[in-house]
Design a protein around this nucleic acid. Sequence first.
DNA 1: CTGAAAGCGCTTACAG
DNA 2: CTGAAAGCGCTTACAG
Lengths: 359, 359
Amino acid sequence: MPVRQADVAKEAGVSPRTVSNVINGHPHIRPETARRVREAIAKLRYVPNPSAQTLRTGRVGILGFAVPDLSLPYFAELATLMTREAAERGYTLLLDVTSGRAEAEQHVVSGLRPRVMDGLIMSPLALCPEQLTDSAGGKPLVLLGEWGVQKSPLAYVGVDNVTAAASATRHLVETGRRRIAAVGPVRGRTGGAASQRLDGYRQALTEAGLAVDERLVVEVDRLDREGGQAAMAALLAAGDLPDAVFCFNDLVAIGLCWAAQEAGLRIPADLAVIGWDDTPEARWARPAISSVRADTEQLAQRSVAALVGQIEHDEPPRHEYVAHHLRARTSTTGRPYRPGETVEGPDWERLPPPAVRPR
Amino acid sequence: MPVRQADVAKEAGVSPRTVSNVINGHPHIRPETARRVREAIAKLRYVPNPSAQTLRTGRVGILGFAVPDLSLPYFAELATLMTREAAERGYTLLLDVTSGRAEAEQHVVSGLRPRVMDGLIMSPLALCPEQLTDSAGGKPLVLLGEWGVQKSPLAYVGVDNVTAAASATRHLVETGRRRIAAVGPVRGRTGGAASQRLDGYRQALTEAGLAVDERLVVEVDRLDREGGQAAMAALLAAGDLPDAVFCFNDLVAIGLCWAAQEAGLRIPADLAVIGWDDTPEARWARPAISSVRADTEQLAQRSVAALVGQIEHDEPPRHEYVAHHLRARTSTTGRPYRPGETVEGPDWERLPPPAVRPR
DNA sequence: CTGAAAGCGCTTACAG
DNA sequence: CTGAAAGCGCTTACAG
């Protein structure tokens, strides 16, 4: 019932081979022939059958993007950008929600899925690169979070967590804070972005001549508002409050601010707070919350480019860093802020655009 | 290089036909044969090639879900639920972000996409059902928003916007409000959910013996925080402030609260505010914002069921309603609220679960 | 209950 | 520059 290539060929008075050539843009086709074929395609509203194409060529035209949690605005934003980025290169993006469960991540990577995708971009939470390496089903894989990827043979795109975290911490120091807490390592999960951010945090404190007090490093169950709320409760219960908190994402910062304000603390007078991801919710919070922003456009662009490069040109996997910025707002500066304004932090950093670090 | 059905057949000492029968669960297979086949499958780690299956059967195993905007938490939540729901029925969910552009919506429905999906669930923003009807590419389509679907032949799943909006408005009346504004119709877009919510709003006001003041109906450019901010600015500029606002989603409510508080208004003492979607951001706002919640689990479950029913059993399209609830919080009641608590509104409503209204 | 064979709709060496 | 033909890996009437 649907129109086939053969119907187009008959309509245009050529062989199917020629129709295929026109569609796939092969050179050396007589302009007149090409025109006739194109007219026939338009007239019959012919659309090639993707399954037949895939069966024949082994190429699917689909990139996978596996995210742990779409309710994190960071991933929702990234998914939107990736969809666009993939479309520009002629691919469709297939989104997979793993909920951070190891089983789901495993399934995406090694299960049925590889067959319906040409490659996968993933932000692993439960699985570490070693577990992913073998199982990628032979398809190219690009990693987005970090999980001790330094020594992994897999491709990786992300921000330099150490530098960015140091920059956030330094910002707190420069606004006069001395007892700075860090909230965000996830209980029971070691390595990954969190440990790099802790490195940056400790490094900046040491450079500023401040002591590192391990009691001020607070773990959370999840990087969500409830986690931030619980962390603030723990800090309050411990007494000897910090005068600033570096939160590993905005949701944690929001929950923490909630609990702090509930306890009568003023932000930033009593407690400065900085988050991570630069979500709209942080910009619209009262007071507006300072945040570290990864350049998500670059992230989407580079990771899709890296994946397509592996797929189409067999490029070797490499590690790549994207820019980050510090958005200083009321929760650290005390200065009024209206959503929509962009206030670069005093010591914001930007890595040179094609910051490629070959492995 | 990958293992094919024929390899499994040879390993098990049967014909490909038998392997296919075992995989597809055909009856009347000798248990001993089935066991041998299954062992061979496991041993060789055979996975059927989906493209070949699709080419042969015409069935893809993929459901599409087209959303206008993943940064709306409502859609992010729905996407997560739908993914799970689809997986339970053996389908993969393909997410498409249309950004509410007519062109993108058209493309999803009529473009290349229908060939890679068995059916589509979509929340149209720019296109009305009439435009969608012809173009569905012959594949089943389930609509999620409303766009004057009452008379559309397309399947529809959603909340009863009239009833829910009336309920929200009545709640404001019952907490003593008399000048109640409605913020949310999108400028230049007529019909759809917004006009139904306006109907419910007017209906409730009239029933309460209050006059409907059309100057209190405020349009927005988009249903986002900026839209709410601008709407509040307009209300402030107009003078003669309302004492309550019914916002058509939580983002608008959040932007509106921001602007109201910036102007020195106290919520709810000076202005009561209720939103729609019951997002976490509304629960964690200060004060916590009351909201109308559609039962998203039901929505996901019913819409996937309706789509799969059309695909697999050729069921006729029908209109179906899911339950909604009113979550009364500080922004209307003035009572303290801690995120995580569930406070049903005094006049919350729930439609009987299988609320099917055949067309 | 299972084999041998055709065909889903493409692409692509192989000829001309 | 274009035709005729094979084959990608499945499923399924058709026989037995």
